[in-house]
């Protein structure tokens, strides 16, 4: 969990700060202004921004290019990278290129399966898995070598993130998987959206018992719900999502006009609760196509102002 990278995210986390990251999805088109507009509403409220990599297997502007646009605006990106679309040659090449542009953080993922996206007839790659990707980035940073063992001139030094889903099955295995990701080289972990607080706390407790929480920075994922329909959809249709029934009921219990407000309220309660857990070092706000709410959430949660460390 010490990458000695030059980024702000690592600085905040390693100085016992509480980090805030948010998610920003690149557009289905080549207009840089779209990503700039999305980023602008986040500017100043978050410490780093995850830029997704063709999320849900839908073709979008590349993560690297969108990261570059963010940096030009003074935001620090976390480049998401999935192993679904690129083999080890392309992955490594893109990491070198990304670092040369100044990208300091990476989130290593295997990616949503292409059957869910815009190109279900595509051939997937999955040459390596997300665990292997973590290790690859670590080896580049610590050993200065690529996967073939070649000594890189100016190896990339990236702060390495991985995802964890405390809510997927089999539950006992979820902590083992976390341990493996840490061993492989993860510096920080961003979790799946927390709606089931009991299960999240159980997972954290198990991780603590294994001594894992001392080795990695865990950022709890949160997503404000907009409506009862969205809650139900996430519960039923989104793989790996756990939205307990009482929460769905609560969303349905308020007038439609007030539903979004209620969603934000739930989100704020979740944030308050995870801040009480000392092994959680930050939050990751995934306000899908609702980036403008992030500022309000951060402010109301009392998390302003953000540290102004120079990255």
């Amino acid at each position: 969990m010490k990458g000695n990278t030059a980024g702000k995210l690592e600085k905040i986390l390693s100085s016992d700060g509480f980090a805030i990251t948010a998610e920003c999805g690149p557009p289905r088109g080549a207009d840089a202004q779209v990503i700039r507009n999305k980023a602008q509403v986040l500017n100043g409220y978050v410490d780093a921004v995850n830029v997704t990599d063709n999320q849900t297997a839908i073709v979008r502007m590349s993560s690297i290019a969108a990261c570059a646009h963010l940096m030009a605006m003074g935001l620090e990106p976390i480049m998401q990278m999935v192993t679904r679309d690129r083999n080890r040659i392309a992955l490594q090449s893109d990491i070198l290129g990304a670092y040369s542009l100044g990208i300091q953080n990476i989130l290593c993922l295997s990616g949503d399966h292409q059957t869910f996206g815009s190109h279900p007839e595509a051939l997937n790659v999955f040459d390596i898995d997300s665990m292997n990707l973590v290790r690859m980035v670590l080896d580049m940073r610590e050993e200065g070598r690529d996967m073939s063992g070649f000594d890189l001139k100016k190896p990339p030094r990236m702060f390495i993130g991985a995802a964890a889903n405390p809510f997927a099955d089999p539950f006992e295995y979820r902590v083992i998987r976390l341990a493996k990701k840490i061993d492989a080289g993860a510096d920080f972990i961003q979790t799946q959206c927390v709606y089931n607080m009991d299960r999240f706390k159980d997972w954290i407790r198990m991780a603590r018992e294994e001594g894992l929480t001392e080795k990695v920075h865990i950022l709890a994922g949160v997503t404000p719900l907009k409506s009862e329909g969205m809650a139900r959809y996430m519960a039923r249709r989104v793989a790996g999502m756990d939205v307990p029934e009482p929460l769905i009921k609560r969303m349905g219990g308020v007038p439609k006009k007030k539903a979004a407000e209620e969603g934000v309220k739930i989100c704020l309660e979740t944030i308050a609760e995870v801040r009480e857990i000392k092994d959680v070092h930050g939050i990751h706000i995934m306000a899908i196509e609702w980036e403008e709410i992030v500022g309000e959430i951060v402010e109301t949660a009392g998390l302003m102002p953000r540290p102004t460390l120079k990255s």
């Binding site: 295997s110 898995d129 665990m131 889903n165 793989a239």
Partner: peptide
């Protein structure tokens, strides 16, 4: 997803 190191987050 040809995962070698354990299940993805979608296993249910």
């Amino acid at each position: 997803k040809k995962l070698l190191n354990g299940p993805c987050g979608g296993s249910r």
